Amino acid sequence: DKPLMPYMRYSRKVWDQVKASNPDLKLWEIGKIIGGMWRDLTDEEKQEYLNEYEAEKIEYNESMKAY
Rank of each mutant, 00 (worst) to 15 (best):
M64E: 15
G36S: 11
S11T: 12
E29N: 02
T42Q: 06
D40A: 13
Y7M: 13
P6T: 03
I58E: 13
R39T: 09
E29L: 00
G35M: 10
M37V: 00
L25N: 02
I58G: 11
K13L: 04
Y67M: 12
E29W: 00
E29T: 00
V14Q: 05
Y49S: 03
M64L: 12
K46N: 02
A55K: 13
L25H: 04
P6L: 00
L25Q: 04
D1C: 04
E56G: 04
N61G: 12
P23H: 01
L50V: 15
Y60K: 12
E44T: 11
D24A: 13
Y49A: 04
K32L: 06
K65T: 11
W38C: 01
I58F: 02
R9T: 09
P6C: 02
K32M: 08
G36T: 12
D40V: 04
P3K: 02
V14R: 03
N61C: 09
Y49F: 11
S21T: 12
S11D: 00
K26T: 13
M8L: 11
P6W: 01
W28V: 08
E44K: 12
D40F: 00
D40C: 08
D16N: 08
E29M: 00
M8E: 15
M37I: 00
W15E: 09
L41S: 03
R39L: 06
M5E: 15
R9Y: 02
D43F: 08
R9D: 03
P3D: 11
P6F: 00
E59Y: 07
D1A: 05
A55T: 10
A20P: 00
E56N: 05
Y60C: 13
Y49D: 03
T42A: 12
T42V: 07
P6D: 08
E54K: 07
K19I: 10
V14E: 03
P3S: 06
E62L: 11
L25W: 00
K57S: 09
M37G: 02
G35Q: 13
S11N: 05
K2Y: 08
Y60L: 12
A20R: 13
K46I: 01
M5H: 13
I58D: 11
S63A: 13
R12I: 04
E59H: 08
L27E: 15
I33V: 08
E62A: 10
N51G: 07
K13M: 12
D43A: 14
E44S: 11
P3H: 15
Y67F: 14
I34K: 04
Y53R: 07
I30Q: 00
D40W: 01
M64A: 15
Y67V: 08
Y60N: 14
L50S: 12
N61I: 14
A20G: 11
S11P: 02
N61K: 13
K32P: 05
M64P: 12
P23K: 06
T42L: 04
G31F: 15
L25F: 05
E54H: 08
I34M: 02
K65M: 08
G31V: 11
R12Q: 15
E45N: 06
E44G: 10
S21C: 08
N51M: 05
K19D: 00
I34E: 01
I33W: 00
E59G: 11
K13W: 00
A66L: 08
W15A: 09
N51S: 12
I34P: 03
M64F: 07
E45R: 05
K57H: 06
P3W: 06
M64R: 11
K19Q: 10
I33H: 05
M8S: 11
W38H: 04
M64G: 12
I33S: 02
A20S: 10
G31C: 12
S63H: 07
K19S: 11
A66F: 09
L25G: 04
E56H: 03
L41K: 03
S11Q: 15
S63P: 10
S11R: 14
A55L: 09
W38V: 01
N22V: 07
K46L: 01
E62N: 15
L50Q: 10
R39S: 09
Y7A: 14
E62K: 14
I58K: 14
K26E: 15
E44A: 09
A55H: 07
R9F: 02
I30V: 08
E59R: 13
K13Y: 04
S11K: 15
K65G: 10
A55Y: 07
Q47M: 09
A20D: 13
I33Y: 02
K13V: 04
N51A: 12
R39H: 09
M37T: 02
E29F: 00
Y10M: 03
D1H: 05
R12K: 14
R12D: 08
M64T: 12
S63C: 08
I34G: 01
K57F: 06
